[in-house]
């Protein structure tokens, strides 16, 4: 294994129990926790959402992959067995309702929902690769603020609201995992809309967890630090300064995030609800 202080070390770990999903080998450690279960994942055309879909499929789930662009969804999931892709804008409640109505019509219910769709900043402010741009308050115009809150926070709400009747319809309970961020917990000068939206997700997670616990529906959240996806800052100095805050100073592979997200969806975590699991190499304790 290479030195641990190299942030470019990838997850070239041996895969002990590989399951082939499309062109990718997914580590499952031999588990099959989702045979015959139905899962929906937003932001499923790339990054964390993509890795969550892969892990669900590898463990036997039937997965609805939701993302903004049908073209990107087709490129990612076309021909992969067990996946149905639906183009949806999570910030548009009519679009979200239509997507979950389709799942209802096809499956009658839903066991797991992972709301991984999220944006780092508004497109007008993002750098070429999609990362964060500098944070000065006066540069965050109304449109940027509303866009980030609309996708990350309102979009998460729209999906949970639309999915809840489907999860209730299973009669056997279910699980929702939302994506917060270390940015909501660590003081760091990111553009403010992003940490604000992610802190909002944490509040929503707790409230909905308290609301539906009696129905055996669990709602938890994960708060990742820098994860190796397209949202990873491309500014080397910024990335270095972020990783230096972690006792484990590496960017997190998306597959690692997926492992924890899928764990929270599983019956292994039956007694966990309202929690935010911090996956951040120790940046926030």
């Amino acid at each position: 294994m290479e030195p641990m202080n190299d942030k470019h070390v990838h997850d070239i770990q041996p895969i002990h129990y590989p399951v082939q999903v499309g062109d990718v080998l997914v580590e499952t450690w031999g588990m099959h926790r989702f045979e015959g279960r139905v899962a929906a994942v937003t932001g499923a055309a790339s990054g964390m959402g993509e890795a969550v879909v892969q892990r669900f499929l590898a463990e036997g789930a039937i997965v609805y992959a939701l993302d903004l662009s049908q073209e990107k969804l087709d490129r990612m999931w076309g021909g992969v067995e067990g996946v149905t892709s639906i183009a949806v804008d999570v910030a548009d409640s009519a679009s979200v309702n239509a997507a979950f109505e389709r799942i209802r019509a096809e499956r009658g219910g839903l066991h797991s929902l992972v709301t991984a769709a999220g944006v780092a900043d508004s497109p007008s402010r993002m750098n070429a690769e999609g990362g964060h741009s500098p944070a000065h308050l006066s540069t965050i115009d109304d449109e940027s603020w509303n866009f980030v809150i609309g996708v990350n926070l309102t979009g998460t709400f729209y999906c949970i609201r639309a999915a809840m009747p489907l999860i209730q319809a299973t009669g056997a309970g279910g699980a929702i995992v939302t994506i917060s961020s270390v940015g909501a917990f660590a003081p760091y000068p990111l553009p403010a809309a992003y940490p604000a939206s992610k802190a909002g997700v944490t509040g929503m997670t707790r409230a909905i967890a308290a609301l539906v616990a009696g129905e055996n529906i669990r709602v938890n959240s994960v708060a990742p630090a820098a994860t190796r996806t397209a949202m990873l800052p491309t500014d080397e100095a910024l990335l270095d300064s972020l990783l230096a805050l972690q006792p484990i100073p590496r960017a997190i592979p998306a597959s690692e995030m997926a492992a924890s997200i899928v764990y929270l969806c599983s019956d292994e975590a039956q007694f966990m609800t309202g929690q935010t699991v911090h996956i951040n190499g120790g940046m926030v304790m």
């Binding site: 308290a210 006792p247 007694f271 609800t273 699991v277 911090h278 996956i279």
Partner: peptide
């Protein structure tokens, strides 16, 4: 304890049926 949680450190995970959130 498993390699599934390789980036989780320093955390206190409350397994409490939501008693503490």
């Amino acid at each position: 304890c498993s390699d599934e949680a390789q980036f989780i450190t320093g955390q206190t995970v409350s397994v409490s049926g939501g008693m503490v959130m």
